Amino acid sequence: MPERLVTLNNVSVRFDGPPVIDGINLTVNRGDIVTIIGPNGAGKTTLIKSVLGLQRVSSGNIWLKPGVRIGYVPQHLVLQPTLPLSVRRFMMLTGEAGDRCQQALTRTGVGHLVDASIHHLSGGEKQRVLIARALARNPELLVLDEPAQGVDINGQAALYELIRSLRDELHCGVIMISHDLHLVMAATDQVICLNQHVCCSGRPEDISADPAFIETFGQQVAESLAVYHHHHNHQHNLHGDVVAGDADHRQHEGCSGHGAH
């Protein structure tokens, strides 16, 4: 029986006017990767802020496993540019022990940057540090808001592969927001299409045929996703290049290490 980590029961959030999210039902179990997609203004960030307790719901309720450890990777990291801050000091702000922070940095591939200024990191390096910060808590549930934001296409593929491997190692649950539709199809177990309400949900290989998905994203996108999904049996390095796996898949459309997944 899967271990349930979070359940949303008919959750709605309203500010002034129509609901930002309306009647959301969702369960995430240990070992799940659930990806939320949708157009701008669909309520994706509001939904995960509600899960985190950062946004009060207007109706419905959210159940969290008692004492569940949550690691959160925000969409944007805003730091005072004039404040000197090394990666080491940034990680220590978590309150976790130094050796645990170093282990988390090493696991996400940026352990060598521990003494670097966080202001001078590339987009991909910064995202890996943010994931390491969440990882240092040994989370049972990882919540990621656009984890590949500001990362080039090769680095995005590598980040999604890292998230899958962390799920496998930690046997944690993952809730992730993404707009990288092609990439996310190879990186998730369940897709939820949100546009204030849940338009459709299901396995990534099935979702592209759903009429609600086609209505939201268009026939052309749906058709491209239908032929794009494939078994992901290769690996990427820090820069997104394919370094191991089935050679045939390296030649698959988008699998050369120089294009989208």
Rank of each mutant, 00 (worst) to 15 (best):
Q55T: 13
D152Y: 04
H171T: 14
S178R: 09
G60W: 00
S117G: 05
V151I: 09
S178T: 10
S122A: 05
A97F: 01
A134H: 06
Q103N: 14
R164Q: 14
A132E: 05
V129P: 06
D99W: 12
I175F: 01
V110L: 13
R137C: 04
P147H: 05
V78E: 12
N138F: 05
P84E: 03
G155E: 04
E146R: 08
Q75M: 11
L144Y: 03
P84A: 06
A157H: 07
N154F: 09
R128W: 04
C101I: 04
L162W: 05
S59A: 09
S59V: 00
L79A: 06
D152L: 06
S50G: 06
G150Y: 08
L130R: 01
L93V: 09
G98A: 13
L170Q: 10
R137F: 14
L105S: 09
D168G: 08
Q55F: 08
S122H: 02
D99S: 14
R164M: 12
Q103S: 15
L79D: 03
S50Y: 04
R56E: 12
A104C: 13
A148F: 03
R89N: 15
V110C: 12
E161D: 15
L54D: 08
D145N: 11
D115K: 07
W63Q: 13
I153W: 03
R88Y: 08
M176V: 10
S165C: 07
H119C: 02
Q75L: 11
A104E: 03
T94H: 15
E146C: 08
